[in-house]
Write a protein that binds this DNA or RNA. Structure first.
Lengths: 205, 205
DNA sequence: CGTGGGGTTGAATTGTGTCAATCAACGTGG
DNA sequence: CCACGTTGATTGACACAATTCAACCCCACG
């Protein structure tokens, strides 16, 4: 993403601290340099839906999301590049190549969100967890013998998949007992990829 | 949306027929002129998730969605304006105002998709149905004494809300018995808006 | 006036949530 | 360096919301 060339302020965020997009009247967007961020919505009575996890390179706040309801927090200590919305807007209004990149990015976001709707609306707990592991392996480079380190808690995973912590645990245990994965705390190794893919049941048409 | 000014082919689609975005090597996007369209994903074994209903004025296929998995069908007989993707692309690459509109549209789509994730991941059946009725009332102008005509079947509604037909029915019946709505087949009238809004429980932060 | 496809209702089942107990890992301070 | 407290992960027992299976209804349509 051509966001690299933007003048940006480097900011840090502690574990579990909020990432504020609105500083005074100035809106910002961010690019994750290092660490993991969760983007979420809250409902009354404490229900939470995580709509995305962000890792190095990922973007936040490009879409002019209205302030209410949406939140972003550091899952781990995070380093971010912060860029004023207005700067991005200006660039988008002059640089056609960049504008196109932005549109492509938006389209990818929409596609991902729709895939998540399918997952949340129509998949079972096992399918959700399997799909999650596959997504994370994809994004974190977690195929391979050494597995991947998942920075987020089981609760985070549950709130991402529309489940409870307990169900996530049980499902992981089940996958382990079937020999599909190895679990060492936050490190998960995929042992039987085809089995996971069979369970993660992606779209058909 | 500035799509009105585009040269477009008017096409019709029968009830339940597919709307094909890919004619040969030419991709198209559409604007609904009249009728209702469902956009959906299929999973193996017949599970279906409807990601959106489209009504007059709404757009389809602007985002360069990869052909697989996604489908669009006419819920009612539909009239559409069909525009080649390439034309839109070209226009976006020259007309900055239009490009901006496109981005705003994309941002709105993302926001809507995220709201749907919250609904599918964290809301109860009653909350989903109430939210659905409010959304439809909003989009169809269905507040008011005469209510609104819902063109889609209960099965469609269920597949939109991640429920079963039966649950949708029961929940509607329940809302009726509480005096929140009146049901006459496909026509639904909101009698107690505050009650619905209380149930539909929107985001809090 | 049948016939058929949605819609509605009922009864039984089950996947997932809830509540609760235990465990494992880790940081802290004595 | 070790008891302790804290926090997240795991497991078990039970409850319940929503699904499944089934029957019936009702209207539209040939």
């Amino acid at each position: 993403m051509g966001l690299m060339s933007f003048p940006a302020t480097i900011v840090q965020a502690d574990r579990d601290s909020e990432i504020v997009a609105q500083a005074g009247s100035l809106r910002h967007c961010f690019q994750v340099v290092e660490g993991c961020v969760r983007v979420f919505w809250l409902l009354e009575n404490g229900r939470r839906q995580i709509t995305d996890f962000l890792f190095a390179g990922d973007l936040l706040g490009l879409d002019a999301i209205p302030d209410n309801a949406l939140g972003a927090e550091a899952v781990t200590p995070v380093t971010l590049r912060r860029i004023p919305q207005a700067v991005v807007e200006t660039r988008a209004s002059t640089d056609l190549r960049f504008a196109r990149e932005l549109r492509a990015y938006g389209a990818a976001q929409i596609r991902a969100a729709h895939a998540r709707c399918v997952l949340l609306g129509r998949k079972t707990a096992s399918e959700r967890v399997a799909a999650f592991l596959l997504e994370m392996a994809q994004r974190l480079g977690g195929y391979g013998k050494s597995g991947m380190y998942l920075p987020m808690s089981r609760t985070d995973i549950a709130d991402y998949l529309g489940l409870t912590t307990e169900t996530v645990c049980r499902t992981l245990t089940d996958l382990r007992q079937r020999g599909a994965i190895r679990i060492e705390r936050a490190r998960i190794t995929i042992l039987d990829l085809p089995a996971l893919e069979r369970t993660g049941a992606e779209y058909v048409h």
